[in-house]
């Protein structure tokens, strides 16, 4: 999948869920910029070996649990992105040292439903998997 196709796919999700008062251009540009900074012009291939654990319905937008495990061989880096924020990059774990397993769990503060993407960089290239948090029981304060 070309980067522009992948962005289009992620953008389609965000158009459906972003609140009307959000600046779509800014948020998509944020996602695009983060992706471009990471992968340049490389292809990003969807890959189910990246397991992404995110609740479809989050009880509290201030603490949305997210976990990712990469079974892509020789995983060097895991990056978490969300689609609808100016600063789209959430976390980057450098797993190039064999002592560190390619797994990461944390919590995110989301103001609105979002598509969460895990990017994995390995010696074979870039891979991704995405999932949506569709509803938030209680948004974080704004």
């Amino acid at each position: 999948m070309q980067r522009r196709d992948w962005i289009k796919l992620a953008g389609a999700g965000s158009i459906a869920v972003v609140a009307p008062n959000r600046l779509l251009g800014d948020t998509l540009a944020g996602f695009d910029r983060a992706l471009s900074d990471l992968v340049g012009t490389a292809n990003v291939k969807p890959d189910d070996r990246i397991e992404l654990f995110v609740p479809e319905d989050a009880a509290n937008g201030a603490v949305v649990p997210v976990g990712v495990t990469s079974k892509v061989p020789n995983t060097l880096k895991i990056v978490l992105l969300i689609n609808n924020h100016v600063r789209s990059k959430v976390a980057t774990l450098d797993t190039s040292n064999a002592m560190l397993a390619p797994r990461l769990s944390t919590h995110l503060q989301l103001e609105s439903p979002a598509t969460i993407t895990a990017l994995v960089h390995s010696k074979l290239g870039w891979f991704s998997n995405s999932t949506m948090v569709k509803t938030l029981g209680e948004s974080c304060e704004t």
Binding site: K89, V90, D94, L100, R103, L104, T106, L108
Partner: peptide, 29 residues
């Protein structure tokens, strides 16, 4: 992240991580 004074990894965080971050990682060994 260090294991026995050897740096084994790095984690960059952005502003969308929740307050009082809880972060779980796994070491091989």
């Amino acid at each position: 992240l260090y294991h026995n004074d050897v740096r084994i990894g790095a984690l960059e965080l952005g502003p969308l991580v929740s307050r009082n971050p809880a972060i779980s990682i796994v070491l091989n060994g």
